[in-house]
Design a protein around this nucleic acid. Structure first.
Lengths: 133, 133
DNA sequence: CCGCATCCCCGAGGATACTG
DNA sequence: CAGTATCCTCGGGGATGCGG
């Protein structure tokens, strides 16, 4: 039987994201966070340089991208490959673990994108009945 | 061929989360956000009342849970069932779309939880080489 | 029990300028 | 090109109190 199918508190895994103090919660936030998710998604297509990544993840600032990449690298999801040339060239790519994570993430992203019509319809309904107060 | 396997800009879907102005980005943030992800995860086990939910999602405040539930309800991921009894009883449960989303989310959550050893090891390595500066 | 309203603070995150 | 440093703002989010 697949343990990942169990209810969270029934599993005997050492890490439970529903518990406030669990380190897995922090990592989950790096992964699902505003820029983390998009960065991992972009890198799933292949290795990218800093500014390529920046153009791909529309709206991210230099600072936040840098910060996000550091967090993901530290968690072992992204590998940073710097070449001491001039001008400098730095490539970022997913680690095997990062690829696993990115795949699930992209599944979720594509699901959301594919069902946006339903979401938008639900919003319209909600706003109509609730907004009329 | 499965369209979800395509690169983001090669797909002809109307919604692209990598674009700054796309509404799908907002919904993705509701879903993957700090409290959104945990709320959906908790509700995947079944219908829950407000305070049950609050105890389950360790650390969430009344305000943020309320806010999160509103956003998810508006996006059509959660259904709110209020019974006009006294004391009031309100149940929250996932919609079919919410279940689809929650399943992918839980897949991601369980992956992260299951690989935390690797993450922690990566962090230790990172901090050792980088922290020594 | 289920919330909404209010106050308030702190940190995420943007803009800008500078370095290697 | 690939970042780091600094400043500043805005809103996420906690604490508290009230109302149905």
């Amino acid at each position: 039987m697949d343990i990942t199918q169990e209810r969270a508190e029934a599993r005997d895994l050492p890490f439970n994201v529903f518990a406030k103090a669990c380190p897995s919660r922090g990592t989950l936030e790096h992964v699902t966070g505003r820029w983390g998710a998009l960065t991992l998604g972009a890198l799933h297509e292949g290795s990218l340089r800093f500014n390529e990544l920046r153009r791909r993840v529309d709206g991210v600032s230099e600072k936040m991208l840098s910060q996000t990449l550091h967090a993901l690298e530290r968690d072992g999801l992204v590998h940073r490959e710097a070449q001491p040339t001039n001008p400098p060239r730095v490539d970022y790519e997913l680690t095997p673990l990062g690829r696993d994570v990115a795949e699930r993430l992209l599944g979720l992203i594509h699901l959301v994108e594919g069902r946006m019509d339903d979401v938008l319809a639900a919003r319209a309904r909600y706003d109509e009945t609730r907004g009329a107060l």
